[in-house]
Design a protein around this nucleic acid. Structure first.
Length: 270
DNA sequence: TCTGACCTGCGA
DNA sequence: TCGCAGGTCAGA
């Protein structure tokens, strides 16, 4: 569930608290979340290395050390917890990073959909589409992506090989903001609709980042606080509630096995 | 292009 | 007890 705004919030907080710090010890439990390395190798490879940079691309978070980097995908329920010690140790903690100043950062993932891998130098994201928060995400680039795509616009927005970072929550919210029916074919959008969509992608993601992400289920910030963006959702998980624009009941359907929320009036099929 | 599996907790 | 939540990937 951590989508771009949640991962960005986490990246900013880790950057602020841990960049420049050296790892003095790692306790990692062997788990399927480790992709190209065992827990033991992971701990050994990062020992005594200084965290130089924290980055994000799409839904991926990465830590850069001198000649090695760690790539995290938080799956559905991966979170980082900054805590010195627990009165009661939480379940599903996979890694504890101990830093030289005594601070600790835990990685927890209840559902084990996270993926963690080690890379030489910085990771590359060639298999991913454009990150919509980057300056080169232009209107013409979006137009080019939409052209000739017969898929519906909602799965289009969630396709990480086209646009990296949008998941189910923000796909619903973006399409509501742009007044586009989620079942419309991507290639059928008018120039005006593409312009609205481009604006809504930037607008919804920026606003969610300002609100520290959406805590609908597992997501928490580094300090264990919930995000605030769930207070601002207009359609996601609001079935049968009134559309904030026109008062029509929000409809729910299923597209590509994902819950899809929309206003039948504001987002009418053309 | 679509569907099911993976995985666990929560609520009905 | 069962369905649902949803990111990604393999397979149909």
């Amino acid at each position: 569930m951590p989508e771009l705004p949640e991962v960005e919030t986490i990246a900013r907080q880790i950057r602020q608290k841990f960049v420049g710090r050296r790892i003095s010890r790692i306790e990692a439990n062997q788990s399927k979340i480790f992709q190209n390395v065992t827990a033991e190798e992971f701990s050994r490879m990062l020992l005594n290395r200084k965290l130089e940079r924290v980055g994000r691309y799409g839904k991926y978070l990465y830590w850069v050390f001198d000649d090695i980097s760690v790539l995290f995908h938080l799956g559905m329920s991966g979170i980082f917890i900054k805590e010195k010690s627990f009165s009661r140790y939480p379940q599903h903690i996979h890694i504890c990073f101990n830093f030289e100043n005594g601070s600790r950062l835990y990685f927890q993932d209840v559902r084990k959909f996270s993926k963690i891998s080690l890379h030489k130098n910085s990771p590359s994201f060639t298999s991913l589409g454009i990150d919509p928060t980057q300056p080169n995400f232009s209107l013409s680039k979006l137009k080019n992506l939409l052209i000739s795509k017969s898929a519906a616009i909602k799965p289009f927005l969630m396709d990480q090989q086209l646009i990296a970072g949008i998941g189910n929550i923000y796909a619903n919210e973006i399409l509501f903001d742009a007044k586009i029916n989620p079942q419309r074919r991507a290639s059928s959008l008018s120039a005006r609709e593409i312009q609205r969509l481009h604006h809504s992608i930037a607008n919804i993601l920026r606003s969610a980042i300002e609100h520290f992400g959406t805590s609908y289920s597992a997501y928490r910030t580094l300090g264990g606080e919930v995000g605030e963006n769930q207070k601002f959702l207009k359609v996601y998980q609001r079935k049968d509630l009134q559309c904030p624009n026109c008062g029509t009941s929000i409809a729910k359907t299923v597209m590509n096995s994902r819950s899809t929320f929309y206003c039948k009036k504001c987002q009418a099929m053309k």
